[in-house]
Nucleic acid binder design. Structure first.
Length: 873
RNA sequence: GGACAGUUAGCUCAAUUGGUAGAGCACUCCUUUGACGUGGGAGAUGUUAGAGGUUCGAGUCCUCUACUGUCCACCA
């Protein structure tokens, strides 16, 4: 135990030192627990390997570290598996940008070189984000760190793909998919964001054989070139006579049928719909119903192909303008109007995505989805907060097959080979039949590998000791924004391949927003860099700000003023500890002294502490970390520091050896328990302080989390202290109103009523806490002193002769106001207790509590009334 | 179009199964007494968005309305 504490907490020095100390002692590892300890495992949501720490990361790191540290202190074999995600598209985009800056490109350097460059990039920047997690205090087991492209995880990915193929759940086929022309890859439905934007609606006349025409509207005129039909509602009086006739595609004169289909909305646009099966999801469905040809007019880069006739080679948007101009010249157009419509954009990069026919690999997801639905429905998996279960059900009930192939280079190669005649072989190696087999070029969707994360990181498909001991994991803590992308897929994959739910609880946190509730974005310029806040205030205050004032699933508006306030809280705790350590002499036995040896303030603070511990336990059980933190904060500052420490000064400075030692023991014990309670939230400052106070054990990180001890719950002590605190506050208040200098000692006369013994015993408190030098307990029936202001608490009345001559009128005014306030509360309370229904229906303890409250109010009112009667006639 | 949240003090947010609304910041006044001025003391601030309902009792449960936000969805 170091000798004396520094005056202030040097968090910058201490954070790095403590983190290194914890880690080098192996305390982040589950092996630090007893061999037969129950495991508690969290798989960290792997951040993008090239990402930089943002507030969302800081939030989940904080929450998960709280869960892990709490479990560890409860004796569990706590394991937090860290890692990173290769993040296919995001990373490839970054490396491509780097190549562009170097004046080259992905295509130019070739696949092999590109992969080498990306790995090099990963080695260079991949460590950054996880080292930033360390600064937050994340107690992960770094020896078990994983990366989704590791050998082991890649093996798991191939294994899963092959098994799914063997089970007939993987198929390859030409389907309409979302195509990203810039990235030149397919993306899944989830990766497409649909936003309302201002655009144009183009009206034109479709020529019909026989000289007639039919007006049609479209938002994408270039797709006219790929039209396969014009559809009208079969009962539309305007057009139904045209069904069966032929129309001619503008500018190309290709013949297409006019068909009737109930999908068409007669009220929208012109009521007639051009059908472009190869470039629109709805039209694709119509085409299948009517057996229409799928005419693909686009190349992979978004330029038009030979099917577009003279428009071939033009970019899709250039073609749109040119075709429209040509049609206008041919007097086929009607008008163009402003139109708000939904534009599909890529989640990465933001370019407009095109529905396009393409050969891709798909996973039949239905069988997996059914298992995943059942697991939540029957309670094997609980989602917190519960309302997200509905959203989860809805998505899985309507799920579409998952397009898992991506035309990228950075990722897991699909383990498939093609023979000369187009045969497909799926396996880890091509068949050894002497023939030439060409490997598949595509890679898998990033989320395919992250879906395996909870078990692949523990060694699956090998039956490793880690997998046996630590799978299934306990809690999946992540943001609600990736419920579908990731959580649902982990549940599906986990159930399918391990036959067990990969975790029993999904805890979803909200998004971090700025103090005005706006989304944090670079363009808004409201980004807050967590590391800057850590530099300025330390990790503990940031963690505390992120966890307080938030509830599961709700977004958090982070006000940096809260971080600053918590920095002051950290200092406050430091100073409490400073006081305690300065007042220790010799050996202080650990633990609280026996209850019946203690004075009232000690009985009170220990009762409060045990109520707190009980409450914190309950709150942790229901994931209410913010509320638990708030209560610990409130206890430490408003009860321990403001009252107990102040009251302990009497026994410390004036008490005999026994009371002195008791006060020291209680001071140390309550501080110790509070530090334990607070440690999951503020690991650094609590650990550092713990070194300076008497303790047993190596480190706070491994110390036991407090358990409530009912023997120290003392309602009588709490009631008595409340009375004394009320009286002291009343005296302070009155002094303030009478402008009595704070340094001036005053005398008080107290009519102590039923509390005479209490007052006699603890009159010394008044000297320190409200500068009452002498407290005279008045004999029963004694008259109030002249020229005194009075303070009432319960049936106690204190008379303060504050000046030689008090202002009777002002004092009467004050008393009358006080009395009126009490009267309102008494009236309410009496009405309640006078209500037969309340007495008979409310819980008995609620009624009893109200009776006690009313008695107190009436006693106070009586005291004041008496005072008014004697003073104010 | 469907669903889900939110609306509480000037600001940011709390309020454990319904028991009569709190904290921080900001604000006013006072204060350097042996932990802390990164402190201490005192104070002011609310028809809990609005309207109805259930209940002895509603911020909390139900219905409707308004506004804000999010997710899902095939309107060219």
């Amino acid at each position: 135990m170091p000798e004396t504490m520094p005056k202030n907490f040097d968090f910058q020095e201490a954070e790095a030192r403590l983190y290194e100390w914890w880690q080098s002692n192996g305390w982040f590892k589950p092996e630090a627990a007893l061999p037969d300890a129950e495991p508690f495992v969290i798989s960290m949501p792997p951040p993008n390997v090239t990402g930089a720490l943002h507030m969302g990361h800081a939030l989940f790191t904080t929450i998960e570290d709280i869960m892990i540290r709490h479990a560890r202190m409860n004796g569990k074999a706590a394991l937090w598996v860290p890692g990173t995600d290769h993040a296919g598209i995001a990373t490839q985009l970054q490396v491509e940008k780097m190549l562009r800056d170097e004046g080259t490109s992905r295509i130019e350097v070739g696949r092999e070189e590109f992969m080498a460059r990306t790995w090099a990039w990963k080695e260079k920047y991949g460590g950054t984000i996880l080292s930033q997690f360390r600064r937050l205090g994340a107690s992960c087991d770094w020896d078990r760190e994983r990366f989704t492209l590791d050998d082991g995880l890649s093996e798991a990915v191939r294994d899963v793909f092959i098994r799914l193929w063997d089970q007939g759940l993987i198929y390859r086929g030409t389907r309409l998919v979302n195509w990203s022309p810039g990235l030149q890859t397919a993306v899944s439905d989830l990766e497409v964001e649909r936003d309302e934007e201002q655009g144009k609606l183009y009206f034109f006349n479709y020529p019909v054989d026989g000289g007639d025409f039919i007006p049609v509207a479209t938002t994408r005129p270039e797709t006219i070139l790929g039209d396969a039909a014009v559809a009208v509602h079969p009962e539309d009086e305007r057009y139904k006579h045209l069904i069966g006739k032929k129309a001619r595609v503008p500018m190309t004169n290709r013949e297409i049928p006019i068909i009737g289909d109930e999908y068409v909305d007669r009220a929208f646009g012109t009521g007639a719909l051009k059908v472009t099966p190869a470039h629109d999801f709805n039209d694709y469905e119509i085409a299948k119903r009517h057996d229409l040809p799928m005419i693909n007019i686009m190349e992979k880069d978004g330029t038009l192909n030979a099917n577009a006739g003279s428009y071939a080679g033009l970019d899709r948007f250039v073609a749109r303008e040119k075709l429209w101009a040509d049609m206008t010249a041919a007097t086929m157009t009607i008008r163009v109007q402003d139109h708000t419509y939904i534009v599909p954009r890529s989640q990465r990069g933001g370019e407009i995505v095109e529905p396009m026919l393409s050969m891709q690999w798909f996973l039949k997801i239905q069988p997996l989805a059914e298992k995943a639905l059942a697991a939540v429905r029957d309670g094997r998996i609980q989602i917190v907060p519960e309302r997200f279960e509905k959203i989860y059900y809805h998505w899985l009930e309507n799920i579409q097959d998952w397009c898992v192939s991506r035309q990228l280079w950075w990722g897991h190669r699909i383990p498939a080979w093609y023979g000369r005649n187009g045969e497909i072989h799926v396996g880890k190696q091509p068949p050894l039949d002497g023939r030439d087999w060409t490997p598949e070029q595509d890679v898998l969707d990033t989320w395919f590998s992250s879906g395996l994360w909870p078990f692949s990181t523990l060694g699956w498909p090998e039956n490793t000791p880690d997998l046996a001991r630590f799978y299934p994991t306990a809690i999946m803590e992540t943001g609600y924004d990736i419920l579908f992308f990731w959580v649902a897929r982990m549940i599906m994959m986990g159930l399918w391949f391990t036959d067990e739910a990969p975790f029993h609880t999904v805890y979803l946190h909200g998004l971090v927003r700025d103090k005005l509730g706006r989304k944090i974005s670079k363009t808004l310029g409201n980004t807050i860099d967590p590391t800057e806040l850590i530099d300025q205030y330390g990790a503990d205050p940031l963690r505390f700000a992120l966890i307080t004032g938030t509830t599961p699933g709700n977004d958090i508006n982070l006000d940096t003023a809260r971080v600053e306030r918590n920095w002051r809280f950290v200092n406050k705790i430091w100073q409490m500890a400073n006081f305690v350590t300065q007042n220790l002499e010799g050996d202080v036995p650990l633990g609280a002294p026996a209850h019946d040896e203690l004075d009232l303030p000690s009985r009170w603070i220990l009762s409060r502490l045990n109520h707190l511990v009980d409450s914190v336990q309950r709150l942790f059980a229901t994931y209410q970390y913010g509320e638990a933190a708030r209560q610990i904060d409130d206890f430490l500052w408003s009860e321990y520091a403001d009252w107990y420490i102040e009251m302990s000064k009497y026994p410390l400075y004036q008490g005999d050896d026994v009371t002195k030692l008791n006060a020291r023991r209680v001071l140390v014990h309550v501080l110790d328990q509070s530090l334990r309670l607070l440690h999951p939230y503020m690991p650094f400052v609590t650990e550092e302080i713990w070194k300076y106070i008497p303790h047993d054990g190596d480190a706070l990180i491994m110390a036991a989390y407090p358990q409530a001890d009912a023997a120290y719950i003392d309602d009588a002590a709490e009631a008595q202290m409340t009375l004394l605190i009320d009286l002291i506050r009343g005296v302070r208040n009155t002094r303030d109103e009478y402008n009595v200098e704070p340094s001036r000692k005053i005398t008080a006369f107290v009519n102590a009523g039923s509390n005479t013994t209490l007052l006699e015993q603890y009159s010394y408190l008044f000297a320190r806490l409200c500068n009452v030098a002498t407290l005279n307990i008045m004999p029963f029936g004694a008259r109030a002193p002249e020229n005194a202001a009075s303070v009432v608490a319960g049936d106690l009345t204190a008379y303060l002769p504050l000046t030689d001559f008090i202002d009777v009128a002002a004092e009467c005014d004050r008393l009358t106001k006080e009395h009126a306030k009490l009267d309102i509360q008494i009236a309410k309370s009496r009405a309640m207790l006078g209500n037969e229904q309340f007495i008979s229906r409310a819980q008995s303890d609620v009624v009893e509590k109200e009776r006690v409250r009313l008695a107190g109010l009436e006693a106070s009112a009586g005291q004041i009334a008496e005072r008014i009667a004697s003073l104010c006639q």
